[in-house]
Amino acid sequence: MNSPLIALESISKSFAENNVLQNVSMTVNRGEITTIIGPNGAGKSSLVRVILGLITPDQGNIKRSKDLVIGYMPQKIHIDPTLPISTCRFLQLANTSHDACHKALDLVGIPEVKNTPFHKLSGGEMQRALLARAILRQPNLLVLDEPVQGVDFNGQNALYGLIGELRSSLNCGIVMVSHDLHLVMSATDHVICLNHHICCQGKPEQVTQDPAYLDIFGETALYNHHHNHQHSLQGKVSDDGGNHQHGEGCQHD
């Protein structure tokens, strides 16, 4: 029961000679919320796709627990309006039971949209519907890619509250991607600060003190991002003379 749900060991992946992930190791345990943060283009979504099994890493090992069931909530989704599909039907793609779908919609707080065409949902409703689909397969690992994108401030708090409840009600591990630690601070057990490699990791309060974290997110941390190294459009750390500091366990030059 206490073996990790998924363990990544020294994962590397490059696309067209772009080293998107370099030597990334992480484990996710049941009942634990891990948040991956990092600037745009830092490889967060690629790391998520490795966890999901959607992309195969060039190097490294992945150990999945035998009973692993993943519920995935993508960043956003576009459904062509020519495809007529109600929200309930959309959920039934994950679990054919009508009842289960209605319960899931109740749980995420949008029971009223079950007959609404999916492409007509508002941004916040759509995020909740995606979360509902993620939990419908009774997952023991929830993977949430920027779960509160496009949701207003109050909605964000409510969603994070809901995610925290799901952790205990489903007793599942949760991996969450965010580009902003501020909101997830209270709801997360473990933070991984990613910029192709793992810059630093630990409990949220440790990470926010970590020089490597501050280097990426800046002294004033969460609202203004000061960089002492520049990121190119691809998210590469441009040459800054090697004067950014490294966190513990950071192995790149």
């Binding site: 796709r49 999901l52 959607l54 989704i77 495809l83 959309f90 793609l93 993977v143």
Partner: peptide, 8 residues
């Protein structure tokens, strides 16, 4: 509807 969700 969504190929990545389907794959997962």
């Amino acid at each position: 509807v969504e190929p990545e969700l389907a794959a997962v």
